[in-house]
């Protein structure tokens, strides 16, 4: 399991989807969660950075777990996800400050993600509000942006959640670039507004 965390964490950092100490990863197995340590560097994960704690119940390890442990737990309880990637993709975060939803205009993004909801909350880090609202959205969408904060993506394995995160950032870069170019954009993607 460490290798899977290391590979995903390293890729997230090297591709700029997270800064040195941002983001967190987890997987669920039964009623237990393996989550990255609070303040760990995803690009350089070691065994000590993987913290095992309960899905429903706290234990002493909770004080080492990621600040987003509450959100991870809520997502597992509210969805069928078995893995979660939380990242801080730059273009997606910037776009989330402008748009109320992100509509992919490229083929892969539209095919894979359809639409990415943008969730606003007063508190966005370790937030009870996100614990309540994110699982509902992640039942329907693979990845959700929290305005001005970052993305939460779910999958059956870490790689899948990482794929959605990576794709999200690509979607946002393309949207960004086309806006900069100020040209007409193919409108097929409009249908995804009602997705």
């Amino acid at each position: 399991m460490l290798k899977e965390f290391q590979r995903t964490g390293s890729d997230l950092f090297l591709t700029g989807l997270n800064s040195s100490h941002s983001g967190n990863l987890s997987v669920r197995f039964g009623d237990r969660i393996l989550v990255t340590r609070r303040g760990s560097m995803l690009g350089h994960l070691e065994q000590r950075d993987l913290i095992e704690t309960g899905l429903h119940k706290n234990d002493s390890k909770i004080i080492l777990a990621s600040t987003e442990i509450g959100v991870h737990r809520a997502i597992y309880k509210g969805t069928s996800a078995l893995a979660i990637v939380h990242a801080h993709p730059v273009h997606a975060t910037a776009l989330s400050l402008q748009d109320n939803e992100i509509i992919p205009i490229d083929s892969e993004g539209a095919y894979l993600l359809h639409k990415i909801p943008v969730l606003s909350a007063e508190h966005t880090i370790g937030s009870r509000e996100l614990e309540e609202r994110l699982p509902y959205l992640l039942r329907e969408y693979k990845v959700v942006m929290v305005r001005g904060h970052g993305s939460f993506a779910v999958g059956q394995v870490l790689e899948e959640a990482y794929q959605y995160t990576s794709s999200l950032e690509n979607v946002c870069r393309i949207v960004w670039l086309t806006r900069v170019l100020k040209g007409d954009v193919e409108k097929n993607s409009e249908k995804y507004k009602n997705w």
Binding site: N58, I62, S66, T67, G126
Partner: peptide
């Protein structure tokens, strides 16, 4: 906000 977000002060110590 940070006290509520940090698992040490929001979960570990209170529980």
């Amino acid at each position: 906000k940070w006290l509520k977000a940090n698992p040490i002060t929001s979960q570990g110590l209170p529980e």
